[in-house]
Design a protein around this nucleic acid. Structure first.
Lengths: 198, 198, 198, 198
DNA sequence: AATGAATGAGGCTTCATTCAT
DNA sequence: AATGAATGAAGCCTCATTCAT
């Protein structure tokens, strides 16, 4: 007997997708387990079969996002070519990826402090490694004299990612700018602000 | 006549202060009314005498922050002097003010979406007016040829305020940089990224 | 200095009137003291100056109604004339009075069981005396052979007053029947059902 | 397999029974959910598993009563036999049923106005249909010349059901009259008051 | 005669989670 | 792999009443 395609999609995946959407829409605390399972078309029992708790669901979402972002950054950072080009490409990519997965991004920055202390620590550590890899690109450029050296690299990264994280607040598909456009602009702004003094 | 200072402070003010601190620390949804009134040393009944609801408390916090920020921005924007200096001063000030009132800032960006739809609309509108005033400074500079014109002013503002809002995530008093230092750096980064070509 | 007429009306009276209206509209338990004082245009302190409690307010309403009904019944019952005429007149009058003071009637039968046990007892006793006076009219007619004797007088009174109390449920001013019309019909129905067997 | 009968009865049914008893005893507003679940021997969570709200509980009680009464009325009204006999039987039956389920009746007329506006409307509509079926019997008799025609049928029904609804106020099992006796008397009173002149 | 801030108890409801099946 | 009844703790809010002024 052939089953419907919708039902075919693994339950676990459906739960993650719907949870992400709902957490992005109304926040972790304001989303009930009941709403999640209803949206995924299963019962609570099913959810607790795949996930240890509501917290665990959030943890899994974080894991997925972190793995993907780190992978992409590594690809761009480890490529060949001038440092300015590599940083530009990496910056542009993280913006486009964020725009393409806006729900993930919203959940990430709105609900991070709802994680349990232990999980929170793990996520922070993963996130720090990501930031450090990005910062190293800035430092590389500063050492090579391609970027100005009178600004703390760490702070520049926080500055830039603040702008990236905030995309979820104002970007809407169908707005005046597309993801790639914003990506190019953001990368331009970053690179220009790092340009050495004339 | 004069009694203990802590007890002297009006109940309403004490409630606002403690609520801000707690919302910043653990989020709006994860803070119970019971915790707020306990921290303020009053009973629930007292809180509901001054505020219509937990939501209303949050709304009042927003009102206070918005009024203060708009006031300061207006002062810097309407001052005399070259546009680049005025924008630099305004940018520097908003960073310093944010750092000095980090709890306000944390609450603002973490809990905004927990407001009721009606109140949310009002706050968004207030916030938009603030952004527009800031954006007008950028446009003024672009028209005058002081800033490069090939980047959307609106987006630049979103870029910059993303960085500002994100301060609550990584800034800690006693860290390597002081508020004024970060303020100068952020303003520098903004101005440089707007510097005209060649 | 001439004060407004509305303000001129005694506070106590205004409180009773508004309380009656609100209790009739939404019931005793669902009406808050705050709503009553707001409707009367005074503050809680004023209410507690005139009445010992919310219960006391209800008690006063009952007292007023009971006194008036007993007075009117006595007038009709003690008049001269044939018993059938006196009962008819009394029955007609209680219907018209009920219709004219529908709020009083609604409060009476909807909120009686919200009185404190002690007050409840007093009201029941008063009410019983009223019923007994009415019942005595029926008995008088039965003894005189004017009314059929094969039906318990007590029950006839309960039967009739059930119909009267229920007026608040269906009667609306401006409906197909006026108060006097309903009064005549109800009295007719009562008298006919008591007519001796042909 | 068979355990204690009390525990055996389904939770949902037990909740309805106890709620009916308590609402009849002290009114809807004065009965707390805590009291209901305690009487039924379950927890609040269990109640909210079966009923959406305290209001919903009341609504279900109304539904049960309305369905039963309509069913019985239809049986008597649609039977064969002279109209006078059918009306007498229906009137007698509603009295006996009311006496047998006095709690239902008390709840019905004391707490109806505590329903939410939407549910209230539904219940009123159901109730109206019941009244109309009863009224049609009166009209049938009037058209056939068996009942006097100079009295509005609608009002007669309101008159009679006022008396029926009021039973909960004065009837007590073990009193001087039994349910069937009151049923016969009430039906007699109704039929006599409708007897044609001469 | 009247105010209004403050109390404290209690009300309805929501929710993550468990467990027998 | 999945159900769904049931739990129990906690959450937000309402309210009659008091009291210093």
């Amino acid at each position: 007997m052939a089953r419907g395609a919708a039902t075919e999609e693994p339950v676990r995946q459906r739960l993650l997708t719907e949870a992400t959407r709902l957490f992005a829409e109304r926040g972790f605390e304001s989303t009930s387990v009941q709403e999640i399972v209803a949206a995924a078309g299963v019962t609570k029992g099913a959810m607790y079969h795949y996930f240890a708790s509501k917290d665990d669901l959030l943890h899994e979402i974080y894991g997925r996002v972190l793995r993907m972002q780190m992978e992409r950054l590594t690809t761009f950072a480890d490529a060949s070519g001038p440092i300015a080009e590599r940083l530009h490409a990496a910056a542009r990519d993280v913006v486009m990826t964020t725009v393409d997965n806006l729900d993930d991004s919203k959940v990430f920055f709105r609900s991070m402090h709802q994680l349990s202390p232990e999980v929170y620590k793990i996520v922070r550590a993963d996130r720090r490694r990501y930031h450090e890899r990005f910062r190293d690109l800035v430092i590389e450029g500063q050492r090579g004299g391609v970027f100005r050296g009178d600004v703390p690299a760490e702070m520049v990264v926080d500055f830039f990612f603040g702008a990236v994280h905030h995309l979820g607040t104002w970007y809407h598909p169908g707005g005046p700018l597309t993801g790639p456009e914003i990506g190019r602009h953001f990368a331009d702004l970053l690179l220009r602000s790092l340009a050495p003094v004339g």
